[in-house]
Measured scan of single mutants.
Amino acid sequence: MAEQVALSRTQVCGILREELFQGDAFHQSDTHIFIIMGASGDLAKKKIYPTIWWLFRDGLLPENTFIVGYARSRLTVADIRKQSEPFFKATPEEKLKLEDFFARNSYVAGQYDDAASYQRLNSHMNALHLGSQANRLFYLALPPTVYEAVTKNIHESCMSQIGWNRIIVEKPFGRDLQSSDRLSNHISSLFREDQIYRIDHYLGKEMVQNLMVLRFANRIFGPIWNRDNIACVILTFKEPFGTEGRGGYFDEFGIIRDVMQNHLLQMLCLVAMEKPASTNSDDVRDEKVKVLKCISEVQANNVVLGQYVGNPDGEGEATKGYLDDPTVPRGSTTATFAAVVLYVENERWDGVPFILRCGKALNERKAEVRLQFHDVAGDIFHQQCKRNELVIRVQPNEAVYTKMMTKKPGMFFNPEESELDLTYGNRYKNVKLPDAYERLILDVFCGSQMHFVRSDELREAWRIFTPLLHQIELEKPKPIPYIYGSRGPTEADELMKRVGFQYEGTYKWVNP
Rank of each mutant, 00 (worst) to 15 (best):
residue 147 Y to R: 01
residue 229 N to V: 07
residue 226 N to Q: 08
residue 203 L to A: 03
residue 101 F to V: 00
residue 199 I to N: 07
residue 60 L to W: 07
residue 111 Q to K: 14
residue 217 A to K: 03
residue 81 R to I: 12
residue 213 V to Q: 09
residue 223 P to M: 07
residue 64 N to I: 05
residue 72 R to L: 00
residue 179 S to T: 12
residue 123 S to M: 14
residue 252 E to N: 12
residue 27 H to C: 06
residue 45 K to E: 05
residue 165 N to K: 09
residue 144 P to Y: 00
residue 8 S to G: 07
residue 85 E to G: 09
residue 57 R to L: 07
residue 119 Q to M: 14
residue 9 R to Q: 09
residue 137 L to T: 10
residue 132 S to M: 14
residue 163 G to A: 11
residue 118 Y to M: 07
residue 247 G to Q: 05
residue 100 D to Y: 10
residue 25 A to D: 13
residue 11 Q to F: 15
residue 185 N to T: 10
residue 69 G to Q: 04
residue 243 T to I: 07
residue 74 R to I: 14
residue 80 I to F: 08
residue 146 V to D: 02
residue 229 N to T: 06
residue 113 D to H: 13
residue 222 G to W: 08
residue 158 C to R: 02
residue 35 I to M: 08
residue 222 G to N: 13
residue 95 K to G: 13
residue 162 I to R: 14
residue 91 T to R: 14
residue 197 Y to D: 00
residue 167 I to S: 05
residue 233 V to P: 05
residue 20 L to I: 14
residue 206 E to N: 07
residue 50 P to L: 05
residue 65 T to L: 11
residue 81 R to M: 15
residue 236 T to Q: 10
residue 219 R to Y: 06
residue 109 A to G: 13
residue 90 A to F: 09
residue 11 Q to I: 14
residue 67 I to D: 03
residue 110 G to T: 00
residue 77 V to R: 09
residue 28 Q to M: 10
residue 126 N to P: 05
residue 140 L to I: 09
residue 117 S to N: 15
residue 177 L to H: 05
residue 144 P to D: 02
residue 159 M to Q: 14
residue 130 L to I: 15
residue 75 L to Y: 13
residue 63 E to S: 10
residue 55 L to W: 04
residue 180 S to T: 04
residue 43 L to C: 04
residue 120 R to G: 14
residue 19 E to I: 15
residue 208 V to D: 04
residue 154 I to A: 10
residue 125 M to C: 12
residue 10 T to I: 15
residue 42 D to C: 02
residue 152 K to A: 09
residue 67 I to A: 02
residue 157 S to K: 15
residue 227 R to E: 05
residue 245 G to S: 09
residue 160 S to Y: 09
residue 13 C to G: 12
residue 52 I to N: 02
residue 117 S to H: 12
residue 7 L to T: 15
residue 155 H to R: 15
residue 234 I to S: 12
residue 91 T to M: 13
residue 232 C to F: 01
residue 142 L to H: 03
residue 103 A to D: 15
residue 23 G to K: 15
residue 166 R to F: 01
residue 147 Y to W: 03
residue 202 Y to C: 00
residue 36 I to G: 02
residue 66 F to A: 08
residue 69 G to H: 05
residue 100 D to Q: 15
residue 130 L to F: 10
residue 51 T to Q: 11
residue 140 L to V: 10
residue 77 V to Y: 08
residue 247 G to V: 07
residue 15 I to Y: 08
residue 138 F to R: 02
residue 100 D to V: 11
residue 84 S to N: 08
residue 239 E to Q: 04
residue 121 L to D: 03
residue 7 L to S: 15
residue 118 Y to V: 07
residue 246 R to P: 02
residue 108 V to R: 06
residue 206 E to P: 08
residue 151 T to V: 10
residue 222 G to I: 07
residue 130 L to H: 12
residue 77 V to W: 10
residue 65 T to S: 09
residue 136 R to W: 06
residue 138 F to W: 15
residue 96 L to W: 11
residue 11 Q to T: 15
residue 250 F to I: 03
residue 237 F to V: 13
residue 60 L to V: 10
residue 193 E to M: 00
residue 230 I to P: 03
residue 30 D to V: 09
residue 90 A to W: 11
residue 177 L to E: 07
residue 214 L to H: 07
residue 93 E to R: 12
residue 239 E to H: 04
residue 190 L to C: 14
residue 181 D to L: 08
residue 87 F to L: 11
residue 26 F to S: 10
residue 235 L to C: 10
residue 102 F to P: 02
residue 33 I to C: 10
residue 79 D to Y: 07
residue 232 C to H: 06
residue 127 A to Q: 15
residue 118 Y to N: 06
residue 175 R to F: 12
residue 90 A to P: 08
residue 244 E to P: 07
residue 209 Q to T: 09
residue 213 V to D: 02
residue 65 T to V: 13
residue 244 E to R: 08
residue 56 F to H: 06
residue 195 Q to S: 10
residue 109 A to D: 13
residue 173 F to S: 05
residue 207 M to F: 01
residue 81 R to D: 05
residue 118 Y to E: 04
residue 211 L to M: 14
residue 35 I to N: 06
residue 222 G to C: 12
residue 200 D to N: 05
residue 164 W to T: 10
residue 206 E to M: 08
residue 106 S to I: 12
residue 23 G to Y: 11
residue 128 L to H: 13
residue 122 N to P: 00
residue 32 H to S: 10
residue 28 Q to L: 09
residue 250 F to P: 05
residue 237 F to C: 13
residue 12 V to R: 15
residue 94 E to Y: 07
residue 179 S to V: 02
residue 38 G to K: 03
residue 186 H to I: 09
residue 247 G to A: 06
residue 242 G to V: 02
residue 52 I to C: 08
residue 89 K to M: 11
residue 15 I to E: 11
residue 37 M to A: 15
residue 34 F to E: 03
residue 243 T to Q: 02
residue 192 R to S: 10
residue 224 I to K: 03
residue 149 A to D: 12
residue 31 T to E: 11
residue 230 I to D: 05
residue 84 S to E: 08
residue 141 A to S: 08
residue 33 I to R: 01
residue 179 S to N: 04
residue 182 R to T: 13
residue 157 S to E: 10
residue 121 L to S: 00
residue 235 L to R: 02
residue 70 Y to S: 09
residue 76 T to N: 13
residue 133 Q to G: 08
residue 68 V to M: 08
residue 87 F to M: 09
residue 161 Q to T: 15
residue 144 P to T: 00
residue 35 I to C: 08
residue 246 R to C: 04
residue 169 V to H: 03
residue 36 I to Q: 04
residue 51 T to C: 08
residue 137 L to G: 08
residue 178 Q to H: 15
residue 210 N to S: 09
residue 118 Y to G: 06
residue 55 L to Q: 09
residue 192 R to W: 10
residue 93 E to H: 14
residue 33 I to Q: 07
residue 39 A to S: 05
residue 73 S to Q: 08
residue 80 I to L: 13
residue 76 T to R: 12
residue 223 P to E: 08
residue 144 P to W: 03
residue 159 M to W: 09
residue 163 G to P: 05
residue 134 A to V: 15
residue 184 S to D: 08
residue 212 M to G: 03
residue 117 S to K: 10
residue 91 T to L: 12
residue 5 V to E: 15
residue 32 H to I: 08
residue 172 P to E: 06
residue 237 F to S: 06
residue 168 I to R: 05
residue 253 F to S: 10
residue 30 D to N: 13
residue 103 A to K: 14
residue 174 G to M: 01
residue 219 R to C: 08
residue 203 L to C: 03
residue 199 I to S: 03
residue 139 Y to L: 06
residue 234 I to G: 07
residue 251 D to T: 06
residue 20 L to F: 15
residue 81 R to W: 09
residue 170 E to Y: 01
residue 41 G to T: 03
residue 149 A to E: 15
residue 232 C to E: 07
residue 191 F to N: 04
residue 51 T to D: 04
residue 148 E to V: 10
residue 118 Y to D: 04
residue 155 H to L: 06
residue 218 N to T: 03
residue 168 I to T: 12
residue 59 G to P: 01
residue 39 A to W: 03
residue 10 T to R: 15
residue 179 S to G: 08
residue 8 S to R: 15
residue 43 L to R: 02
residue 12 V to Y: 15
residue 68 V to C: 08
residue 36 I to D: 04
residue 216 F to K: 04
residue 211 L to H: 03
residue 109 A to S: 11
residue 239 E to L: 03
residue 74 R to Q: 14
residue 75 L to R: 09
residue 245 G to E: 07
residue 106 S to K: 11
residue 23 G to C: 10
residue 147 Y to V: 02
residue 11 Q to N: 15
residue 104 R to H: 14
residue 126 N to E: 04
residue 225 W to Y: 06
residue 9 R to I: 15
residue 191 F to E: 03
residue 167 I to Y: 09
residue 22 Q to W: 09
